[in-house]
Design a protein around this nucleic acid. Sequence first.
DNA 1: AGAATAGTGTCTTTCAGACATTATTAG
DNA 2: CTAATAATGTCTGAAAGACACTATTCT
Lengths: 254, 254
Amino acid sequence: MNADPWEPPAVLLAVDLVILTLRDARLHVLLVERGIEPYSGALALPGGFLADAHEDIEEAARRELSEEAGLVDVHLEMLGVYGRPGRDPRGRVVSVAYLAIAPSLPEPIAGTDAASACWMRVDDVLSTQVDLAFDHRHIVGDGVERARAKLEQTALATAFCAETFTISDLQQVYEAVWGVRLDPRNFYRKVQNARGFIVAAGPMRRTENGRPARLFKAGPARTLYPPMVRSAQASAEDAGEAAAPVTAQGGQQT
Amino acid sequence: MNADPWEPPAVLLAVDLVILTLRDARLHVLLVERGIEPYSGALALPGGFLADAHEDIEEAARRELSEEAGLVDVHLEMLGVYGRPGRDPRGRVVSVAYLAIAPSLPEPIAGTDAASACWMRVDDVLSTQVDLAFDHRHIVGDGVERARAKLEQTALATAFCAETFTISDLQQVYEAVWGVRLDPRNFYRKVQNARGFIVAAGPMRRTENGRPARLFKAGPARTLYPPMVRSAQASAEDAGEAAAPVTAQGGQQT
DNA sequence: AGAATAGTGTCTTTCAGACATTATTAG
DNA sequence: CTAATAATGTCTGAAAGACACTATTCT
């Protein structure tokens, strides 16, 4: 089984980026219009092949992040590998997908060399409203699912925010990514109780419409304790059900 | 940036398996002795290259699982991609690691064609007691970390158990994987309260030393609610600590 | 004075952790 | 009987969800 003159098959290695951000309180993903076959003209995730045989995979992801989205120093983590035979008509292409989280920026996209890049609402992408090349819709779904899960247990939410932010800003992140409404008062308490999640950023404040809010910045904690738990409903969706009524009813006590 | 006659670099794609199981209440990982260069004679994770250019990656993982460990129908999930240039002296080899969970089986290994396979204690592997080829020690660490985390939120623990099991069996899984001691009475209650985690398997029972225990089988739930939380200590190890009470006094009202 | 948002407090239920107690087997 | 493990119960504190209330700004 070993010393054969057999040669293992070679594959082409690509990286694809699921870059998420918040725009007007909605979760968006960055897509580019493909300029070459296959799927020329279709929307796709930013990405590309390894530049050369010596490039590290994460390095390639950061390069594409910079080239195609003009982003540096953003959160980046490996999401998964997508290598189903036949997913790319050019041959055996295996793609390593990365999840990137970008803070809400005013400008559409910065120094992009693919000027065709645009932010699309994730709901539209996932609900067949928008067609994507390859299996990219599936990858986006996995990326969003990863983000949803990590918001519970880690401080990932701060990656969606600017250097400093208010607790409302942070709440918008949770609401947009989870697709739920949260009680501001309970949210406030929970965020404050999560040790090391956020720390006060000077005695500054900020103005908008009502009372000015305190500013915070990301704290030292990477994992949250206590975690930011989603309600039983949200988490238990795939829990097999029959899973007890959860007691929840309007609550008509007294 | 597109219509060049440029050719992207090709890589060799391998799969590596982190197969975890419980043996006498300890977490073990399956290793094989390499028969070929590089690292001939050294211990390594079971795995190998894609069989041909049309083989799906997970299919390759299941094939290796069967060939090298004689295991079928076990839990299998993608763990990550390890493709650092230079990790394999033969050239650019990118390895997709999978995490497999096998139930405790009496026999060492079944119909293995690599007769050199052996179960090693994970603690020994991770604490430099045992040398592994390539970056496989690192991969084992990632696999164990994944298992630890998933035990909290998912029903993964049942994958370590046989078809039916007692609550003590399940507790041993948690204790071995997390490396902690748990209170049997609290564990009993928590497991029972996790909706859909385990369901009674007939009114049968089993004998050992003390009172016979009820038998259960895995329930329908994939995610646990409420989750099986590790103590604050364990989870908050990297929580930054010194993490001030926040209380932020930007405005010292009153 | 609104309207709007920020921040605090309170009450009830659920669950985690510590630990007593009872139940059912083997010797 | 004792030893051993299984199963249930009880108490306390932490935290979640619902929601009243106060605080600080703008118009």
